[in-house]
Design a protein around this nucleic acid. Structure first.
Length: 722
DNA sequence: CAGAGTGAACTGGGCGTTTG
DNA sequence: CAAACGCCCAGTTCACTCTG
């Protein structure tokens, strides 16, 4: 710290011993301190700074314990004060010397209070009238301490003061003024409490504030008996003079009334004369008017007619208005009845539409506490309809659901994407470190949300990424290895950390995947599946560009005047296997001919396909799959793509289940050309080529039994999960 | 009993005001 | 312009009640 005071100097200035400080820090004080000087404050701060402890919280805690009567400000404010005091050399010198009482003595308020006859008064009834004439510094200080002890706000103190101080003092009593006075008085009072010196108070008395305090505390002088008598006499004299004055006033009033009455009589006489003159004039006018009356009557008739028309017009306008009002009321009533349903009447659960609305509002940063208000305002003013809306906490619950839905969406996206990139970005807010994660697939970019992390080192970041991927995998009930296989790139702006992070993730990835590779070795791809895949790759559309022979195959087929049924096997979709099997059965002889006669040096993949397709055992498996495709998979596919409702699916699934159970033991029925369709309205097409192939290869039936059993197992699994 | 609603207690940041 | 502080707001948590 940049200060001219060493720790030992501060200790001297503070007036504490090392033992005192130890007692304070270790909370061994038996009685609380009443105040603390800047020197003590600075010394305490420096001592704690040397300790292995959080400075602000510890300092705050110690101060709270040591000085229970004083309210300790927030640690951030403490830090500001300390920084200011310790960094500004001149100021601390002045303050500490002043606090230590070396050269300046004018601020000792306690002495001032005593000299002015200020006494400490009970504050148990702060609004009692006995305080009216003694708003002293000390009392004010006590009020403030009382305020802080009881957690009153300055508004309350302000109200007390308004009652305490006589109105004529014209004291501007605002909470802010109170605060300011309290700070000033508190500082001075604490200095006095610390030093207890009795020097000259003249300078302090000359301050404006003291003058004000002085004026509030003038004691009333005790009067002598003679003075009292004189006062009483003076009072009776004043009373007599007052009475007389009143009599005079009454007489004056009467005289004024008399004058006014005379004036009035005079005025009235004048008026009578004027009225007579007017009467004669009016008689003449009446004569003239009688002549006019005739004319007027004819005019009146005309006017009356016009008026009637006008009246009707007015009536019309009024009726129109009333009509409009009634219409409006009708509309509003209709709208009132047009209540938007937001709750499921059976379960009282808010509807999914409302939930979606809340999700979206939260997504565009509407505060959760305001969402219901926003919806209500829109529905009232735009759609004029009433709506039942959830309260704050329910909205929060629904927002939680949104988070779960979001996580589910992400894990689904990850599970369904062939590859994805992982982005992370570190940022900080409110002193916390936050890791923001996103995934980027071919189709979209999704946020995985924020995670608060303690430190941004490679290990933590790697762990967070691991946890996030594992959590996502758990939502889909799949192994995280599946995600790791699709993870194609990781990016971040924290390149220094990411290098190591990437290394950790790579290690993890390879260890996880090696396990999976081992599993693959033990559980390698069946020959039939391999044949269907590789044949489709070399002969089918969008297959293997390097080793494939698609163009030659098409030319070969063109020569034979046939069309190729080999499918596009990409995407690993399961139905590829079935349709692929049918196409292999169709083209078995063509493929053997093509591969064995048209290539001088066939590559390994072509050799592999040729070997597989020439093998009876492999082909018997393929034929079994083709049978399953024609009789089960294709009709089921047609069913799925139809307009059948999801809830009606059970009607088809049940018979499928019983048939599979039957066929897993005996599948003779599948070879019957007149077999009843598996799904009503979705008949299979009896395929002679497939059927013949299935009948000529050995072991097709036992293979079909196995396929049916596997299908049944899958079906049972799906029924359990749904 | 689950879902919805209510309100108190608490945290922590933003903002405005006063003071030196 | 910094320090200090109060007020307000958003958000969180928890205990409890209501209702179908």
């Amino acid at each position: 710290m940049n200060t001219t005071f060493s720790k030992s100097e501060l200790l001297t200035l503070s007036g504490w011993t090392a033992a005192d400080v130890a007692d304070i820090i270790n909370k061994r004080l038996t009685t609380g301190l009443s105040c603390i000087t800047s020197a003590q404050y600075a010394f305490l701060y420096m001592t704690i700074a040397e300790m292995d402890a959080t400075i602000y919280t510890t300092l705050e805690e110690i101060l709270r314990f040591a000085i229970p009567a004083i309210r300790i400000p927030k640690w951030s404010n403490v830090s500001r004060t300390v920084t200011r005091n310790l960094l500004k050399k001149e100021k601390i010198t002045e303050e500490i010397i002043s606090a230590a009482g070396k050269s300046q003595t004018q601020k000792f308020i306690g002495k001032a209070c005593n000299a002015l006859g200020i006494n400490k008064l009970s504050l148990e009834s702060p609004c009692s009238s006995s305080l009216t004439n003694s708003a002293t510094v000390e009392a004010f200080h006590e009020i403030c301490v009382y305020k802080n002890k009881n957690n009153y706000c300055w508004g309350v103190v302000c109200a007390w003061m308004k009652k305490l101080i006589p109105e004529e003092m014209q004291f501007k009593c605002t909470p802010d003024k109170m605060k300011y006075l309290h700070q000033k008085v508190n500082t001075l009072y604490q200095c006095f409490m610390k030093n207890r010196k009795t020097e000259d108070l003249q300078e302090f008395k000359n301050t404006n504030f003291l003058k004000f305090i002085n004026s509030t505390t003038k004691a009333s002088r005790i009067l002598t008996a003679e003075e009292k008598q004189n006062n009483e006499l003076a009072k009776t004299c004043l009373k007599l003079v007052g009475d007389q004055k009143q009599n005079f006033q009454e007489i004056n009033c009467l005289m004024e009334e008399k004058a006014i009455l005379r004036e009035m009589i005079h005025e009235q006489n004048k008026q009578i004369n004027l009225n007579e003159a007017k009467l004669t004039k009016q008689k003449l006018q009446i004569h003239d008017l009688k002549g006019q009356k005739q004319e007027n009557e004819t005019l009146k008739a005309e006017i009356k007619e016009k008026q009637q028309i006008e009246n009707r017009k007015q009536e019309n306008i009024i009726l129109n208005r009333e009509n409009k009002i009634v219409n409006d009321e009708l509309n509003s009533l209709q709208n009132k009845n047009k209540k938007v349903i937001t709750k499921d009447p059976d379960s009282r659960r808010y509807t999914d539409d409302l939930r979606t609305c809340i999700f979206e509002l939260q997504g565009i940063d509407v505060p959760s506490n305001k969402i219901s208000n926003v919806i209500r305002s829109v529905s009232d003013n735009i759609f004029h309809s009433s709506v039942d809306l959830p309260c704050r906490s329910t909205v929060l619950n629904i927002c939680d659901e949104a988070h779960i839905v979001a996580k589910q969406q992400i894990s689904e996206t990850l599970a369904n994407s062939e590859n994805f990139d992982f982005f992370s970005d570190g940022t900080g807010r409110d002193g916390k470190k936050i890791l923001d994660m996103r995934i980027h697939t071919k189709k979209s970019t999704l946020s995985l949300g924020y995670k608060v992390i303690a430190k941004e080192d490679s290990e933590t970041v790697a762990n967070v990424i691991k946890d996030t991927l594992q959590e996502s995998a758990s939502y889909q009930n799949v192994n995280v290895q599946k995600f790791l296989l699709s993870l194609s790139a990781m990016m971040s702006d924290r390149s220094s950390v990411m290098k190591k992070t990437n290394q950790i993730i790579d290690e993890w990835r390879s260890s996880e995947l090696s396990q999976q590779l081992n599993e693959v070795e033990n559980n390698s791809e069946p020959a039939a599946v391999r044949l269907i895949r590789t044949a489709s790759e070399i002969l089918g559309p969008r297959g293997d560009e390097k080793n494939g022979v698609r163009q030659q195959w098409l030319a070969f087929m063109h020569d034979k005047k046939k069309s190729s049924k080999i499918i596009n096997y990409r995407g690993n979709r399961f139905n590829n296997l079935f349709t692929g099997a049918v196409s292999i059965v169709y083209h078995q002889h063509d493929v053997i001919d093509f591969l064995s006669n048209y290539f001088e040096t066939p590559n390994l993949k072509l050799q592999s396909v040729l070997a597989d397709i020439s093998c009876e055992g492999v082909m018997s498996q393929v034929a079994a799959i083709a049978m399953a495709s024609v009789l089960i998979a294709e009709p089921y596919w047609n069913l799925i793509n139809s307009n059948e409702k999801y809830v009606d699916l059970y009607k088809f699934v049940r018979p499928l289940q019983s048939k599979l159970a039957e066929w897993k033991i005996n599948c003779d029925e599948m070879f019957d050309r007149n077999m009843k369709p598996l799904f009503e309205n979705y008949p299979h097409v009896t395929d002679e080529i497939v059927l013949n192939a299935a009948m000529c290869f050995p072991n097709v039936k036992s293979n079909l039994n196995k396929i049916c059993e596997a299908m049944l197992q899958k079906l049972r699994g799906s029924l359990k999960t749904t």
